[in-house]
Design a protein around this nucleic acid. Structure first.
Lengths: 235, 235
DNA sequence: GGTTTCTATTGATCCTTATCAATCAAAACG
DNA sequence: CGTTTTGATTGATAAGGATCAATAGAAACC
């Protein structure tokens, strides 16, 4: 395990003093903190390890302290990556308040450190803290909206638009830079775009030849953001 | 306006005695009812009329008393019908707790009677009633899950699977019968399936020729539910 | 070090679905 | 009524991606 991850886990003795405190938690009372702290534990995952699997019981709210995680759904034929989760986010999807089962799978894309909070404690806190519960409603609504937008894109845009959108997503939402090392294989990148890896590769090649991006193995560089935005918009 | 709609509107003097009371409302206190009742009003819509339009302010939670409504998103090229809403459901989508704007449009598919509840009153009630807010979390989570499932279907299944899924949806979720008059034009049916009307029509033709369904204008009859389920599953 | 395995890439081909155009019937309209 | 308009249907064609196959290179493994 990395030194930085060890440090984080060691520091993580009390949610109230947590280095990676979620904005949502500023609404918590001392009693809330105490309850959440009781059954809480921190787990480290290595790249490629499954954090949880579609269909298993939803026993813990999982809060991502460090690293990247892919959330994806599996079907007979192909996988679809719903989104990439980054530190200070909850992962687990909408299963918490629906079926008590995970509706998707989560896999570590890098070394990951995650905090597991007992689901019953969490729900109890939400139940007794109306500020928190309103914020959680907002949070779930925003996530829901993002899935809507994904649905619109995937059902209407074609390959170049989808790849451009994906590149903008990674640049602006995940890595906050026009230059980044993508933590996904080409297969996974295709799964994220909702197409085969071959199609994704071909579009990347076109974008390279047009001088809009540079790709070398896992390293991506975006030269022309406006062009990508244009391609993403026209679909 | 229809007689039945007149009756409903006349009867709708108090939410506590509402004929079409939402399961969610059993958690309301008398004070909650009073607050919701204050600014509440009922509106009738004729088939084809817009209940609200994508991009406008989210000023009211809209509760469907009678009739069917299509919720859809519009883009440059095509529309996508997200779902059909039936009586005793809230419509409005996730906009309530996100942007204060409607993220989709709603159009009456039949004569419709809907109850408009002031959004601030509604939020105030949710804020002060933890049972209700937990139920709302569940409700929003279930809707979110359904969008996920839609996303999986549309991104992976091909035309026959999508049409079969749509027919099962209308039969089982909307009309509760294997024989029904569809309130959608062929164009709208295509928008619901996420394809062009021509493609949808061709699939319907194939299903007719295989003896799985019968279609005459807007009247649909399903003879072989298991076959549809099979087609829907294999995609 | 040599073999095996896995991933990325490219080319060729096929399948699915969108697009375009034409026809037909029903409904709306003057 | 005849005319216009609208929606449904069918056929022909084209475009976009998926699939399959082959190759190359890198990484993993004896």
């Amino acid at each position: 395990m990395e030194r930085s991850m060890m440090k984080r886990m060691k520091d993580c003795r009390d949610c109230e003093d947590c280095d990676s405190k979620q904005p949502l938690f500023k609404f918590l009372t001392p009693e809330n903190y105490e309850l959440l702290n009781k059954d809480r534990f921190v787990v480290g995952f290595k790249k490629g390890e499954l954090v949880y699997k579609q269909g298993t019981s939803f026993t813990h709210v999982i809060y991502l302290i460090s690293g990247l995680v892919k959330l994806y759904m599996e079907t007979r034929n192909r996988n679809l990556i719903i989104r990439i989760s980054k530190p200070m986010e909850f992962i687990g999807g909408p299963g918490m308040y629906t079926s008590e089962r995970h509706q998707n799978s989560a896999m570590a894309l890098s070394n990951v450190c995650a905090c597991f909070i007992n689901i019953n404690s969490f729900k109890e806190v939400v139940r007794t803290n109306s500020l928190l519960s309103e914020e959680l409603l907002k949070l779930i609504s925003v996530k829901g909206q993002q899935v809507f937008d994904r649905l619109m894109s995937i059902s209407h845009k074609q390959a170049p638009g989808l790849v451009a959108e994906a590149l903008l997503y990674f640049s602006e939402q995940i890595y906050n830079s026009t230059s980044f090392d993508l933590n996904l294989s080409r297969q996974e990148f295709g799964d994220f775009c909702g197409m085969t890896k071959e199609s994704a590769i071909r579009v990347l090649k076109d974008l390279k030849e047009e001088g809009i991006i540079k790709v070398d193995e896992e390293h991506f560089e975006i030269f022309d953001i406006p062009a990508l935005r244009r391609i993403s918009e026209i679909g």
